[in-house]
Design a protein around this nucleic acid. Structure first.
Lengths: 346, 346
DNA sequence: GTGAAAGCGCTAACAA
DNA sequence: TTGTTAGCGCTTTCAC
């Protein structure tokens, strides 16, 4: 096995080439400072001896690790892999790698992770859907050169933020259902700890208020399929006359669809369902899921670009708001529209 | 902003406490060696001064970074988030963090990544579905203290491996379709570069041979939904009498289902479809997808545990084979069975 | 064009 | 119980 591979270092190459480590360093970093022959010999030796620069030593010396910490609540939620890909593509183009961590919806673990990443001297962090209270989060981010939050806002000195306009998006969703003639609307509200969940509720309530309708019933749950199914069950058992559901995210909505299917409720005829996020999965279930769509890959890119700016000390923008877009699919479609709801592969 | 937060170091605490850095180091690492009072004072100071040990310096000194490199082909394929969670849970319990990289199905990028991770002096790598040729891969892994491959095997000195028995699994799938009475079976074969794809084909062919049937037609494609849909289109246009499809993975199978739906073919009546992997998505589409299921989270755990052993120089096992399990759902179900294919939420 | 010295923050090994 | 020395691999600074 390989565990004793003592790696070749600059000094080894220097010795082999009969020059000083400094010269090797310069050549290998393309900073000239050597005769063509010396340079060529060094390049060749480095290759032969399988030299790999030690990023750890470099990081210690330069105080730049080339690593970005990324914290997501749950990588199994298809929302996040898309974001991560966006982050990674920009990171890679700029020579950064990602230290990825899953929080699994625990604030304690989140605090812990932020500490661990600090320990590793990452050059910045991207926190997706932080669950910590504002004060604790601010404090935890003190130790960072740069931080960007997704779906959360703090003082711009502490962190940049990319937020989704949940208020407006949820209001759009609510109006869409109202326009469909639904009046017994209920909300599957996601986690109680989520800041975004509260914003969605505000948006929904204001949309209902402005047409003089009562505020809808709300049930909270975990932001996954099982949570959505359970919440739908709770709501529909207590209020069998509900004719529409606005859901925290698409996973919740898909859980609701499952429950409706299992209890022989027809969607959208008996009950319309709309989600949030626009994950691919929503196009694959039947009926296809209406949703408030956001471009997750683009959001990932935005996060990373903003973080790069902050790492460079540039503070061009510290807050970007993304507006979700209503996508109407079968789960909230009037019957005559549903005819064209077929994908065309011809 | 925070970019000038010069972090407190051991020496700072030492000065404040009026002791040597060494004493602080010992206390903070719980290695005793200080009077209770001194220790208490140091602990308190460390907390007040928000001390975070510098993992970079520690890594340079100890040649252990506490970081594991994980390379996956595509994090957007729901197979991998599950594996990653398994890896992460074991890693975390053992004080490791994950440097996660996406290959996006490019062998060149893969080689590059393996180099980069080597540069960062990760304590080990887990490569999922490596696309590099054996020789190149072996060479690239030379520089690692420890490596584990998922779905690939090399000399045990080079890397441990967790493999899925694709041959047996695919043969099971083939037999299942044959038992259903299907005789015009075709294969959506996934990427040509995938070693697992070739193994699946072998399994399928041998199952067909043993009942005296001809080898089925094969079409290759990208291992995602769009690839599956395209492959299904190609197959069914050329051979309209195909009555069953065995697919490289569930995403391919779901693409095939989409094509069937779009072209008004009834599944499983006109054509049965079976996938591989057992991702959750397969239960959500309609008809629900039959599949060869593997426990992805458990596989992730296995990978990480094996890697930990190798890091410790223990070579108890260098190869684990996981056998996929046939899960029959609606997409390959005889009609009389389909009645009970409903999820029960009552 | 090339090299020597010093130090990034931490800790193992050896004093005291 | 506590401190000193030295060095992990690299690069910045200054000198030749």
């Amino acid at each position: 096995m390989n565990s004793k591979v003592s790696k070749t270092k600059l000094a080894d190459i220097a010795r082999a080439a009969g020059v000083s480590p400094m010269t090797v360093s310069r050549v290998l970093n393309g900073r000239g400072g050597a005769s063509p022959e010396t340079a060529a010999k060094i390049e060749q030796l480095a290759d032969e001896m399988r030299y790999r620069p030690n990023a750890v030593a470099r990081a210690l010396k330069s105080d730049r690790s080339g690593i970005i910490g990324v914290v997501v609540p749950d990588i199994a939620n298809p929302f996040f892999p898309d974001v991560i890909r966006g982050v990674e593509s920009v990171a890679m183009q700029n020579g950064y790698n990602l230290l990825l961590c899953n929080v699994v919806e625990s604030a304690e673990r989140e605090l812990n992770l932020v500490r661990i990443l600090e320990t590793h001297r990452v050059d910045g962090v991207i926190l997706c859907s932080a669950r910590l209270p504002d004060a604790a989060l601010s404090k935890a981010l003190q130790g960072y050169k740069a931080a960007v939050l997704l779906n959360r806002t703090l003082a711009p000195e502490t962190a940049g933020s990319i937020t989704i306009d949940y208020r407006a998006g949820a209001a759009d969703a609510a109006r869409h259902l109202l326009n469909l003639g639904r009046r017994k609307v209920a909300v599957i509200g996601g986690p109680t700890t989520s800041v975004g969940a509260a914003e969605r509720l505000e948006g929904i309530r204001s949309a209902f208020l402005s047409v003089g309708a009562d505020s809808p019933v709300v049930v909270h749950c975990m932001p996954d399929i099982a949570g959505g199914a359970a919440a739908a069950a709770e709501l529909l058992k207590a209020h069998p006359d509900i004719d529409a559901l606005i859901c925290y995210n698409d996973l919740n909505a898909i859980g609701a669809l499952q429950y409706c299917e299992a209890t022989f409720r027809s969607v959208p005829k008996d009950i319309a369902v709309i989600g949030f996020d626009g994950i691919t999965l929503g196009e694959l279930v039947r009926p296809q899921l209406s949703t408030m769509h956001v471009d997750k890959y683009a959001i990932g890119e935005l996060c990373m670009r903003m973080l790069l700016d902050r790492i460079d000390g540039k503070f061009i923008q510290h807050r970007i708001v993304v507006r979700p877009e209503l996508i109407v699919r079968t789960s909230t479609m009037l019957e005559q529209q549903a005819i064209s709801g077929q994908v065309d592969f011809a």
